[in-house]
Amino acid sequence: MYEGVVQDLIDELGRLPGVGPKGAQRIAFHLLAADPTDVRRLAEALVEVTVKVKFCKTCFNVSSEDHCRICRDPRRDPSVLCLVEEYKDVVAIERTREFRGRYHVLGGAISPIDGIGPEQLHIRELMVRLADGAVTEVILATDPNLEGEATATYLTRMLKPLGLRVTRLASGLPVGGDLEYADEVTLGRAFAGRRSADD
């Protein structure tokens, strides 16, 4: 045990994900030995995050203003909307540089066993957003696991009657993988979604 503030710092660092008691001690002593200006910059960044970061009022992505960078950008295609579970997924899709439309972050997936139903997600806000008719295609980019699939099924049922084009991300074999290690469901999907080679 260390004295007062040092122990407080170790305790606080130890609460971060993936940081154990030893790791927390190592980070704390690194900070004590580091240049005070560097440490102060880190402290300011931490404080700023709590004050400045909020959620976009339109798409629920993280943002420093009322509306996020993507919702404010007039060059983004307003007719295509991509539905994702978490804001981390927005970053993942943005990294592909393939998608030029806008997003809607649901805030999770339907998982009754964890007490998460459709009411706990931003589905009501989505329906309000779609009411003006500007969106013509909705891409369901929920995770390719059971909860994500069930959420996509539920959303398809809600969105189809609106006359929108509803699409789902393809799933199949990962690039760089071995066919023999693919599980039956993934390989089955890859077969179901196979494409003609001369396209």
Binding site: L146, E149, T153, E184
Partner: peptide, 11 residues
């Protein structure tokens, strides 16, 4: 699980 995700009632 393969068919469950595509059938909300079953899920």
């Amino acid at each position: 699980g393969a068919g469950m995700g595509g059938d909300y009632q079953c899920y």
